[in-house]
């Protein structure tokens, strides 16, 4: 499973990096979609179907909205601007070498500490805190819900769910306020 997950993560990273350098906004958006749908498969492999359902639906809806926005926007102008910018640059110079060296040194530095930290972690799926084992052990009896995630979400951590609903409500109020044309004059 870890090998599959690693391949998937590398694929997602390639998609994310390609999105930065894509000439066209639409292809950048599609490579962003690789990241989102790769995350869905990651959630399924890590045995989190609740998150996978939410991620696949929200990813699809946001992709539809963003494709609609991009097809209506000034996509051609942006492409010409990018091509124009790249014509005037010389790649190999002192600044370029300095940047690449900095990136390599920082990557090695973080890789070292990441390697140190990963050795001390518990294996995946074990409960580190007392709270976690109490949740997993008693949640079905205490809440009466067969799905533990919903039991935790709406009983033990219901404040978080209230906050999440409030955030969505605030987002809607903000969008309706900003996108109102009549009454602004």
């Amino acid at each position: 499973m870890e090998l599959t997950l690693s391949i998937l993560l590398v694929f997602m990273i390639i998609g994310a990096v390609y999105a930065l350098f894509a000439r066209d906004l639409l292809s950048a958006l599609i490579s962003c979609g690789i990241v989102g749908y790769g995350l869905v498969i990651c959630f399924l492999l890590l045995k989190a179907p609740d998150l996978a359902i939410v991620q696949i639906v929200v990813e699809t809806v946001t992709l539809i909205i963003m494709v609609a926005v991009i097809l209506d926007s000034t996509r051609q102008d942006l492409r010409e601007k990018i091509v124009h910018n790249e014509r005037g640059t010389h790649f190999i110079n002192a600044k370029y070498v300095f940047n690449v060296l900095t990136v390599v040194i920082l990557a090695l530095f973080f890789l070292f500490f990441f390697n140190q930290a990963i050795g001390r972690l518990e294996p995946f799926g074990t409960h580190v805190t007392r709270m976690a084992s109490a949740y997993v052990g008693d949640a079905a009896i205490k809440t009466g819900s067969a799905n533990l995630v919903t039991g935790v979400l709406f009983d033990f951590r219901a404040y978080d769910t209230l906050g999440e609903a409030t955030i969505l409500f605030t987002a809607v109020v903000g969008v309706l306020t900003i996108l109102r044309i009549k009454g602004r004059k």
Binding site: D50, I53, V54, V58, T60, G144, N147, V149, T150, L153
Partner: peptide, 17 residues
């Protein structure tokens, strides 16, 4: 939502879809 994977948030997103 309290029996199978999913719940309020996932189902609501499907409804809006």
């Amino acid at each position: 939502g309290h029996l199978t994977p999913g719940g309020g948030f996932a189902g609501g997103a499907v409804l809006s879809g």
